[in-house]
Every structure is written in structure tokens, then in C-alpha cells.
């Protein structure tokens, strides 16, 4: 257990520079978006009011109001999120491969640590999950700050005080990253964890058997995918909607847990008996 924590700490510190850079870039870009959009909006409104000699109410009859929600769907906002997500996806692979490639094959050191090798698996898994959740938390902190700034920058007749909840549920992609209810959160991120676990196992197949390993890994991945979908596949043969949603959910939950455990067990076996430097 202690070694596991040490390794988690270690894995995180290896990526911390890039991680902080991602956070900084996201923050800067999103605040830049806030400045840019609020300036433009205020200027556009003023210009229109003058040009067409509208009153404020007239304006809102013809044009929709701009709120912070609009900022959240702008490029300033979304691009760094996509970029960070891509970086973490990339690192999910790299977190393993970096130990093999590079001048100093650090994998020797990791495999020779006097600890259960599965701790290598768990620590890398934990590191990635924590980093994902860290970005989620960062965004949750940034949104109210950015929203407040956005409102401050606008004249008060253009302001809308929207809560974080409201802002998030109004954006299609934000409501996927931060779902409405905690149970949905657990489900989405649980599924993500499952995917990560299976991915790691596939990587370990490759690292154990190389080219053959890609085939094994591919089959393993495909197998787990089909297994997860099996209740739905079976139902299209039997009769669609044969199972009630709660039953579907229970089965999927069970399958997810079983697949995770099996995947971890396979990884354990590969790490101890088949892995090669």
C-alpha cells in the first residue's frame, strides 16, 4: 500500500510540469475569451443602439442577449479543453511507453522494485484518473470566476447572473463533462476508468508479446467491448426492450465490474509472468 502511494506520487510528479502548463493555458485562454467576448458584445450593443436608435428593450426584441453561456461554447473556451483531453489520452499510452523507450530504460527499475508489480498498474491508473479529475475540478473552479469577471466587464444592463449549474447544463459538451447528478458522474467516469483499465491491459499485451501482443490485445479489447454490449445485442434478437432499464443498468454495472476485475487480473499475470524489457 505504501509503495503504491509512493508510486502514485512519483507518477504525478513526472507529469506535473506539463499538467500545470495545461492548466495555465486553459486558464489564460478562457479568461482571454471572457475579455474578448464581453468587449465585443458591449461594443456591438452600443453600436447598434446608436445606429438604429433603439432603446434597450427594442434591442432585445431583435437580438438575443449574450450570456456567459455563449463564452463557454466559443473556441477560447473549448479548444484548451479538447487539447487537455487529447494530452491526457496521449499520456495514457505514453505513461507506459516512456518507461521502455528513451535513453534510460526506467522500466528495469520499476520492474525490479521490491513491490507487487500490479502496483505499477494501479499507480499509473490512479495518476491518470487523478489528473482527469483535477482538470474537472479546475474547470469547476474557473467557471464561477470567469462568469463573475464576464459580468463585471459588462455594463449592468447587459448582465445575467447565472449559476454554475445553469451554465453547465446549457452547454451540450459541458453537461457531459459535468453531468447533472452525482450518479451520472460516477457512471461516466466509471466507464472511463473501465476503458482505461482495458487500454492498459492491451498495452501490457503489446509490451509482452509485441506484434502478437497487438493481436491479443486487440482481441481482448474487442471481446470486452462485445461483452459490455451483449445485453443489448441479445435483446435485439429476443425482443427489444425486453429488459427494463433498471435491469439493463444492473447488468451493465455487473459486467463492468467483472470486466475490470478480469482485466486487472490479466494485467497482473502479464506483469509478473510475461512482461519483457
Amino acid at each position: 500500500m505504501k509503495n503504491y502511494l509512493k508510486l502514485v506520487s512519483f507518477e504525478l510528479s513526472r507529469f506535473i510540469k506539463i499538467y500545470i502548463a495545461l492548466i495555465v493555458v486553459t486558464t489564460v485562454s478562457q479568461f482571454a475569451g471572457v475579455f474578448s467576448q464581453s468587449r465585443n458584445y458591449a461594443a456591438t450593443v452600443n453600436q447598434t443602439l446608436q445606429q438604429e436608435s433603439f432603446s434597450l428593450n427594442d434591442y432585445f426584441v431583435s437580438y438575443p442577449p449574450l450570456t456567459f453561456i455563449n463564452v463557454t461554447v466559443s473556441g477560447w473556451f473549448i479548444i484548451p479543453i479538447i487539447f487537455s483531453a487529447a494530452a491526457l489520452v496521449f499520456y495514457s499510452f505514453f505513461i507506459w511507453y516512456r518507461d521502455w523507450f528513451g535513453k534510460n530504460a526506467f522500466i528495469y527499475r520499476l520492474l525490479m522494485l521490491p513491490t507487487n508489480r500490479i502496483n505499477l498498474f494501479f499507480s499509473k491508473l490512479t495518476a491518470i484518473l487523478l489528473m482527469v479529475l483535477g482538470l474537472v475540478a479546475t474547470q469547476l473552479i474557473l467557471i464561477p470566476l470567469e462568469s463573475a469577471l464576464f459580468n463585471q466587464l459588462l455594463p449592468d444592463y447587459l448582465r445575467y447572473n447565472l449559476s454554475t449549474q445553469t451554465i453547465i447544463s446549457s452547454s451540450e459538451y459541458l453537461s457531459v463533462l459535468f453531468p447533472d447528478s452525482f450518479i451520472q458522474f460516477l457512471i461516466y467516469y466509471g466507464l472511463g476508468s473501465l476503458v482505461l483499465i482495458v487500454l492498459f491491459t492491451i498495452i501490457l499485451f503489446e509490451r509482452s508479446f509485441h506484434l502478437k501482443g497487438i493481436v491479443f490485445g486487440g482481441l481482448f479489447g474487442a471481446g470486452t467491448f462485445i461483452l459490455m454490449l451483449s445485453p443489448f445485442i441479445i435483446q435485439t434478437k429476443l425482443s427489444p426492450y425486453y429488459l427494463y432499464p433498471i435491469e439493463n443498468f444492473a447488468i451493465e454495472l455487473f459486467l463492468g465490474i467483472v470486466i475490470s476485475i478480469f482485466s486487472i487480473w490479466v494485467s497482473h499475470y502479464l506483469l509478473n509472468k510475461k512482461i519483457t524489457v
Binding site: L133, G134, L140, I141, F178, F182
Partner: peptide
């Protein structure tokens, strides 16, 4: 921080 932020949000 993660637990607090996500906890408060929900």
C-alpha cells in the same frame, strides 16, 4: 481539492 470541488458542485 478535487473532492471538495466536485462535492460542492453536486
Amino acid at each position: 481539492i478535487i473532492i471538495l470541488t466536485i462535492g460542492i458542485f453536486y
